[in-house]
Write a protein that binds this DNA or RNA. Structure first.
Length: 595
DNA sequence: ATAGGGTTAG
């Protein structure tokens, strides 16, 4: 099909030039409509450069319009790669990315005389990233990329990495990364942030080691991904090093970097450093404030979390649901019951926010921790998400703190009814029974555990020594220096025993084989944090603070052990468990034995 | 002419 040829006289050429200039300076849809009208009046709608430019503007510009773009596209006879790219790109970031994939399909199957280029692939990959269940399409596009030789293109590969990683195929993403012939700063950054976002924090940090060897430098994006991973694994030493580099490179005024630093310091247990970064920030956004509120909250410093909340409002920043989670957890850990209730109610009354399941969980915890178990029960019974096992489990935990058999049994019954009871719940209730010397109850729980089969979350702890993070599991024997660590641990136990530490045996009823969930132990077994502490003491100079991250809650025996160690060895020990921080010093813990 | 990247909770 032949398109009518554009006017070729001098007047026509001048009109064409004028319209192209107008398009160049076009910055709104309204102006675009005017220009489009001029194009039609001048009979230039089939002029190649003009129609391509018009289409591109409509499809890609912020003030464009995809419906309009689609109409323009359909008017183009025999569209070229540029035109396809515009329409594929436009839809790839729209609310209907699937359209983008459809246009790509059409392009490769029916379009004559033009082929996808590196841009086309980048756009369609972006679209695939946002279309659910697009795995096979992504694979197909990947195949086409390889066949056309564009698997050597650094941008296309970076898009592939993001597209795979964003849909859980982190291993394939890694493979693309490793096999691409050239990696620039952006590809390294993408790989690191993909790992970090997917929860592969050690891999993220390891990638940074390789990045240093590759000598590509780093920027704010690198730092943000790495700091987030440092925060998750508690790698404070590396975090401090990254802080130093940020300041050297003048990146501290970057609000993303500042926010990531605050979060890293707070999650590594160093609130003073978090505060000093906060104070030095020129610009603060919702992330900045939330990081402070949540940071103080999880450390059990509710009144300071509240103070940050007040300052945040004064600074004119609107709180969001995360802000309230921080406030509520702070109130809960500090026993500020009425304040907590006040902020919970404030969500709906002042901010028109519907409290989510997590907020209800905080409220249950707030009452339960404070011993107001009936009110906690009421919360669950009156909230719409009473089918959620997490709420009942929270209540059961509170019953353990307050040795309340009656409500503990109610919580357990509900967990069983929901088909959600697990070994950890049985241990919690068994502990309560054990503490009130109810042997029958303990026996029942033991039977239940046996009949259900035990599914436990294996416990692990991380400790950072120098620039390395070391991981330990229960009774870990996997390391080459295992003998040395166990020897040290026995020495440490001996020393703290002299100060009065007694290994807890009140939990002997949990001596079911394989039992380790929720920190309840087999007799003669060593929890991961004990191993990590012994390792830390043997590998760091006198007086160095030990920082440990644990995936489960600290058990009572380990909690008591750590208190004694902090005194006997004159060490500050910061343990971040699944729920909160414990700062051990001089034989005492910041949680006041209340967790 | 048109491309690829970031933080909080869970």
């Amino acid at each position: 099909m032949l398109s009518p040829s554009p006017p070729s006289d001098a007047a026509g050429a001048s009109k064409t030039k004028t319209i192209l200039n107008l398009l160049q300076g076009c910055n709104s849809l309204k102006k675009l409509h005017k220009i489009h009208a001029c194009v039609i009046i001048a009979g230039l709608q089939n002029h190649r450069a003009i129609s391509t430019k018009l289409l591109n503007f409509c499809a890609v510009s912020v003030s464009g319009c995809l419906v309009h773009a689609q109409l323009l596209f359909r008017q183009i006879h025999n569209p070229k790669t540029d035109d396809w790219n515009s329409i594929i790109r436009g839809f790839s970031r729209s609310s209907s990315p699937l359209q983008s994939v459809f246009f790509y399909n059409e392009m490769v199957s029916v379009a004559a005389g033009c082929r996808p280029d590196t841009y086309t692939f980048s756009f369609v990959l972006r679209a695939c990233e946002r279309v659910p269940l697009a795995e096979s399409k992504r694979k197909e596009v990947h195949g086409a990329i390889i066949r056309s030789g564009y698997d050597r293109d650094v941008v296309v590969c970076t898009n592939l990495i993001r597209s795979y990683a964003g849909n859980g195929e982190i291993e394939t993403a890694r493979k693309v990364f490793v096999e691409m012939p050239l990696r620039d700063l952006l590809s390294w950054n993408s790989m690191i942030s993909c790992y970090s976002q997917a929860g592969f924090h050690h891999e993220a940090l390891r990638t940074y080691d390789l990045m240093r060897i590759a000598n590509v430098g780093l920027d704010g994006f690198t730092l943000v991904g790495l700091l987030s991973s440092c925060a998750h694994v508690g790698a404070l030493n590396l975090g401090v090093e990254l802080h130093r580099m940020a300041s050297e490179k003048g990146l501290l005024k970057n609000v993303y970097v500042g926010n990531a630093l605050i979060d890293m310091y707070a999650k590594c247990g160093n609130l003073n450093a978090a505060l000093s970064v906060f104070d030095g920030m020129q610009k603060r956004d919702i992330f900045t404030w939330n990081s402070m509120v949540v940071g103080y909250g999880v450390h059990g410093r509710g009144d300071e979390a509240i103070e940050f909340f007040r300052q945040m409002l004064l600074a004119g920043v609107q709180p969001n649901s995360i802000t309230f989670l921080g406030l509520l957890s702070g109130c809960s850990h500090q026993g500020l019951v009425e304040e907590g209730v006040k902020y919970f109610n404030l969500m709906t009354s002042n901010y028109n926010m519907e409290p989510g399941i997590k907020h209800h969980g905080c409220l249950v915890d707030l009452f339960g921790r404070a011993g107001k178990l009936k009110r906690a029960l009421e919360v669950i019974n009156t909230c719409r998400s009473q089918k959620d096992p997490v709420l009942w489990r929270t209540l059961l935990g509170s019953c353990k703190i307050h040795k309340n058999v009656q409500i503990g049994e109610i919580a357990m019954r509900n967990l069983v009814q929901l088909g959600a009871s697990n070994a950890g719940d049985c241990v919690l209730l068994a502990t309560i029974y054990g503490e009130v010397n109810n042997a029958d109850g303990v026996a029942t729980m033991r039977k239940m555990i046996k009949s259900q089969g035990i599914k436990t979350t294996p416990g692990w702890s991380w400790i950072e020594i120098g620039d390395q993070v070391h991981k330990f599991i229960v009774d870990d024997k996997s390391r080459p220096d295992t003998n040395e660590i166990y020897l040290k641990l026995r020495q440490v136990i001996h020393e703290v025993a002299l100060l009065g530490y007694v290994e807890e045996d009140s939990m002997s009823f949990t001596s079911v084989e394989g039992f380790s969930d929720q920190g309840c132990c087999r007799i003669g077994s060593y929890h991961s944090e004990k191993l990590a502490i012994a390792f830390g003491i043997s590998r760091t100079p006198q007086g160095t603070c030990l920082r440990i991250v644990k995936n489960l809650r600290v058990c009572r025996d380990c909690h008591s052990f750590t208190k004694f160690v902090s005194k006997a060895f004159n060490r500050e020990i910061v343990v971040r468990d699944r729920v909160r921080f414990h700062h051990f010093k001089d034989g005492l813990c910041s949680c006041k034995d209340y967790w």
